[in-house]
Nucleic acid binder design. Structure first.
Lengths: 224, 224
DNA sequence: TTTTCACTTAACAATTTGATAATATTAATA
DNA sequence: TATTAATATTATCAAATTGTTAAGTGAAAA
């Protein structure tokens, strides 16, 4: 699930490249570097980064040119792009954002700010990806509210879906009955214990798959 | 569909509020203001802004507290939040982003930078809707406001079109009733639940095509 | 003004869902 | 093995949810 994010850095200053690479890798990111704009575009195509950090001032093709060119390629229409600039020049900042960059950073670089900013950008991007999970040939798609087993849709009622979805959110983890009640029924509503059983039963019946295990005296768990 | 974006600004300095309000309104945004954190939260609940600009330094509840509190409310889980700070303090910047803000701006405020940044944030948030989409032999053209099925024009009323268009913008995704009300009717207007059903009914009737599925207790989804 | 149209609502029908009770079954333990 | 506590199963019914039709409303067009 958690493959690390890929970041491409383009800067003509070797120092900057190293500082950024070091800090980003320490954070768990996969980093590629390019020492000018032309190389950056080439690497971007094969490396397919999730984020590109572009120095604005580079010999040859500068950061904004690179950005424009990247944005014209479908693959990079939605890639995050951050500009790096020493110039505290307002007009440049503006141009940057209007060229299609997502943010900019000013030199000197403060690693902690950089990391925070990047984490923050990624966090914001997260909800875009499919909140779907797969176990063997069982697909659970929370957005579509759908469950597919062996390429066949299985229709689950809301509570059933929520229950399965909850259990499958942490395969292997045993959810206590209280926990389940709390998370699916909330604190307001009070229902008997048998209610959970009945829903579990229906899920098992509909899926006809042995993926929910009873842990007697404790709760239930999903096993992929 | 949704008209202009709504922005809420919270700052204790009247000057700042006015400058921001003036510039943002000139850009076509709808602006609400709050002169402290508590008021901001109250207004946010009724105004339902797309973006919230929070001054960090405010008497009483400061910007970060407000941010945390807002983020704990479902409605604001994904609302854009920008911090405003006079302090060029690195640790503050970091805290800001890690509290769940999406960006920060330092005072003094440079209106053009601000506008650029905001436009940029919104641009990124756009669900990137294609002007026209096709599913089988059903064409939906958002620009022309027209629907063609089997090479015959189907005339849909505005609300019907918007509803179909919304559902079709993410085939498969289940749109909650609240979500639909929010996006098509906005937060101002309050209409009954049957209203949605009736529109759905008319679409189904006019298209005479089984492309909208009901997910009981949840919402509706379009399936291409 | 009258007509038309989009939109909303009310009222009721149809359907689905979820909770419970009652009973059966299972697993742990004395 | 007998006992017991916990869970599984089943059928049933009330409540929740949606579908449908017809009628009301207000604004724009004729």
């Amino acid at each position: 699930m958690n493959t690390s994010k890929k970041i491409l850095i383009a800067d003509d200053e070797q120092d900057i490249l190293e500082i950024l690479q070091f800090n980003l890798e320490a954070e768990g990111y996969l980093v590629a570097t390019a020492k000018n704009g032309e190389v950056a575009i080439e690497i971007a195509k094969s490396f397919a980064p999730d984020l590109i950090i572009l120095d604005i001032m580079m010999p040859g093709k500068n950061g904004m040119d690179v950005c424009k060119q990247l944005r014209s390629i479908d693959t990079f229409k939605n890639t995050l792009i951050i500009f790096l600039t020493a110039i505290k020049d307002e007009s440049n900042e503006i141009k940057g954002l209007e060229t299609g960059a997502d943010d900019y950073l000013t030199k000197p670089i403060r690693p902690k700010v950089l990391i925070s900013k990047i984490n923050s950008l990624f966090r914001r991007m997260l909800p875009e990806k499919n909140p779907a999970t797969q176990f063997g040939n069982l697909f659970i798609d929370r957005e579509k509210y759908s469950v597919r087993l062996n390429n066949t849709d299985v229709v689950l009622a809301r509570k059933e879906f929520e229950l399965l979805s909850l259990l499958a959110s942490k395969p292997g983890k045993v959810f206590l009955r209280n926990e389940i009640l709390q998370k699916i029924w909330g604190t307001e509503v009070i229902v008997g214990d048998r209610t959970i059983d009945v829903h579990i039963r229906k899920i098992r019946q509909k899926l006809n798959l042995d993926c929910i295990t009873t842990v007697k005296g404790v709760g239930y768990k999903f096993e992929g």
